[in-house]
Design a protein around this nucleic acid. Structure first.
Lengths: 213, 213
DNA sequence: CGATTCGTTGACGAAGTTCAAGCTGCGTGG
DNA sequence: CCACGCAGCTTGAACTTCGTCAACGAATCG
């Protein structure tokens, strides 16, 4: 747990609140201090794509000009606002991920990371990869507390809510995970889950943390 | 066509050449001057994920520490190498996209853009979105010259080579495109194609150019 | 002129979406 | 305190799509 790079304005928000909206004029970027946020792009035909979920320590909103997507609070929390030219400052995360570097670099790594989910074509693989990645980022011992709905996950992974629900049930039947409440996932056989997801421990090594571009 | 920000070393490469390899020590980032490049991540189990295709004016390779993915030349071309702390320099693109901004910002926009393809769940929508985006980036009048194979496209979009091939044939039968050679796509009804892809012109407006984070 | 690589196409089966119904938890109000 | 309604989650059945297997065609290169 490191001290964050707090130099901007602290803002508190409630669950469900709009942090910024698609097409709003963009002014600076944000660092999430507590809570969780989803980033959504809305198409003209009404479809929604969930581009990312942010957790404490994540940075987002590096738009130039206008916001390309909406940032919506999944739970109560706080952000710190940074001016656009504040992005030269190296940061240390308070999150358990322990990422460091320029904010823009960290945002790039996070985004590249999301792309990886789509290298898996089947629903169990894609969901397992998501769960394992989220677990690493959230950093709770042996479990996940999901702040988002099934629909959010579905529209993040390019699947339907039904498939997400079915696949979670499947993983439970196989003894991979337990699901005491819809919002909590407990890992039972995490290594097997990773293997079935086609993820090697090497893919998550220190090297994998310094992602691509 | 603007003068590029050439301050580093020019390097020529041949089709098929490895520009940098996964797990190589990372030293600085690259600007593509001519030719085309694919970025691939190889998993321990042998699977390959094509993370991006780069065209002249694009910047890539902002890894910290080690390369997370390989950059492989799809055609003869040239890159300019930049030192790591060279990324504060604002750039003007020579590509027809006309993007500007910090190199890191541009890399982030490019990456976010790739994520959008997966908001479409069906193969025709996903492929159409890819073709329209590539056309915008390549900037040729009314057509695309594909530097990559069907398999490359498939592993970029999370589909198989067969589905790509079938879907191209389908779009041809529907009169959306023509395919005089496997490497050339000519648009016949671009507006219809965009609509069928669920893309509104607004989704590609100036605002969409300043992507998310 | 074979050999190899890449692309196309058909048949089939597995996987995911759609449609539909029902369940659970929670907040509101009688 | 319980009845009700609503929103999110789960599950079954029918249908559609895409991946797999297989064969064949086209282009390239020695």
């Amino acid at each position: 747990m490191q001290a964050p790079c707090i130099r901007g304005r602290l803002r508190r928000f409630d669950k469900g609140e709009l942090i910024f909206g698609q097409d709003d004029p963009a002014s600076g970027w944000l660092e999430l201090v507590s809570g969780s946020v989803r980033l959504c792009h809305y198409y003209a035909d009404g479809r929604r794509h969930v581009l990312a979920f942010y957790l404490p320590g994540d940075v987002f909103g590096f738009d130039a000009g206008y916001r390309f997507a909406s940032a919506e609070a999944l739970s109560d929390g706080e952000t710190v606002w940074h001016a656009r030219d504040d992005d030269k400052v190296a940061m240390k995360s308070r999150g358990s991920g322990g990422e460091t570097g320029l904010p823009l670099e960290r945002a790039l790594r996070l985004t590249e990371n999301s792309l990886k989910f789509f290298s898996h074509s089947t629903a169990p693989q894609r969901l397992a990869a998501f769960l394992i990645d989220f677990h690493r980022r959230q950093g709770l011992p042996g479990r996940i507390d999901l702040p988002m709905s099934r629909l959010d996950i579905a529209e993040h992974l390019g699947l339907t809510m039904h498939t997400i629900s079915r696949t979670i049930s499947l993983l439970c039947r196989e003894g991979m995970i337990e699901c005491p409440t819809p919002q909590r996932i407990v890992f039972r056989r995490r290594a097997d889950l990773m293997r079935s997801a086609g993820i090697d421990e090497a893919d998550f090594s220190t090297r994998a943390m310094s992602l691509v571009a």
